[in-house]
C-alpha cells in the first residue's frame, strides 16, 4: 500500500457515495446512466470473486464488500425505487457492444487461462470503458448536474492516482501488471475531455453544459 493507491481508493469510494447521496437526497436518478452502473456492478462482481479464495488484508476485504454493496444499492435505486425518474430515453449507449468483445478479449489476452483469471481480466477491461454510457448520456443531453460532474471527477481522479501508484510500485517494488496498466491508461484517457470541462466550467461555479 502506498499513499497514491490509498488516495485513489478513497477517491473511488467518495465517487460511489457522492452518487448514492445525490440520488437519495434528490429522490431522483435524472442524468445518471443506469447502464454504466450495471457495468460497474458486473466489474465488481467478476473481479471480487477472490473474496472467497484469497485473503489479502482487512482493508482489502472491507473495501471490496463496500464497493459491491454500494453499487448494488445504486442499481436498485435507479431501476426500482426511483425508476420513474430514470431517463432511459437518453441512456441509449449499446452496452452489449462493449461487453461481448471484451469477454472475447479477456479469453484471448490474459495472464493465465483459468476461470477466475479470465473473469478478473474481463473486469479490468470492462472497467476501462464502463463510464462510456454515462459520458454518452451527458453528450447527448448536453448537460450534467454539478453533483454528477463531481461524481465523474472523483472517479477520474481515482484512475489517475492509480497510474501514479503503478509508477511508484514499478520503482519501489519492481511490480507491474501490464493488463491493469494498459486498461487503466485507456480508462484515464476517457476522462480527459471531461476533466477539461470540469476545470474550466464547474470549478468556476457554472453548470456543465456542452457545446451542441
Amino acid at each position: 500500500m502506498n499513499i497514491f493507491r490509498l488516495a485513489g481508493d478513497i477517491s473511488h469510494l467518495l465517487a460511489i457515495f457522492i452518487l448514492l447521496i445525490k440520488i437519495w437526497r434528490s429522490r431522483s436518478c435524472a442524468g445518471i446512466s443506469g447502464k454504466s452502473q450495471v457495468l460497474f456492478g458486473m466489474v465488481f462482481l467478476t473481479r471480487y470473486l477472490d473474496l472467497f479464495t484469497s485473503f489479502i488484508s482487512v482493508y482489502n476485504t472491507v473495501m471490496k464488500v463496500i464497493f459491491i454493496l454500494a453499487t448494488l444499492v445504486t442499481i436498485y435505486l435507479v431501476f426500482f425505487k426511483f425508476r420513474a425518474t430514470y431517463d432511459s430515453n437518453n441512456d441509449t449507449f449499446r452496452a452489449e457492444l462493449l461487453v461481448i468483445p471484451i469477454a472475447g478479449l479477456a479469453v484471448l489476452v490474459n495472464h493465465e487461462f483459468s476461470l477466475f483469471e479470465i473473469l478478473w481480466t474481463f473486469s479490468i477491461y470492462l472497467e476501462s470503458v464502463s463510464i462510456m454510457p454515462q459520458l454518452y448520456m451527458i453528450s447527448k443531453t448536453g448537460e450534467a448536474e454539478t453533483i454528477t460532474s463531481h461524481y465523474l471527477f472523483a472517479l477520474g481522479l481515482y484512475r489517475g492516482l492509480y497510474i501514479v501508484n503503478w509508477v511508484w510500485r514499478y520503482y519501489t517494488e519492481q511490480f507491474y501488471d501490464w493488463i491493469a496498466i494498459v486498461a487503466g491508461v485507456v480508462q484515464t484517457l476517457l476522462y480527459c475531455d471531461f476533466f477539461y470541462l470540469y476545470i474550466t466550467k464547474v470549478i468556476k461555479g457554472k453548470e456543465m453544459s456542452l457545446p451542441a
Partner: peptide, 10 residues
C-alpha cells in the same frame, strides 16, 4: 491459480 497471479489491488 492465485499463487501465480497476484492481484492485491482493488
Amino acid at each position: 491459480r492465485y499463487s501465480f497471479v497476484d492481484h492485491d489491488e482493488l
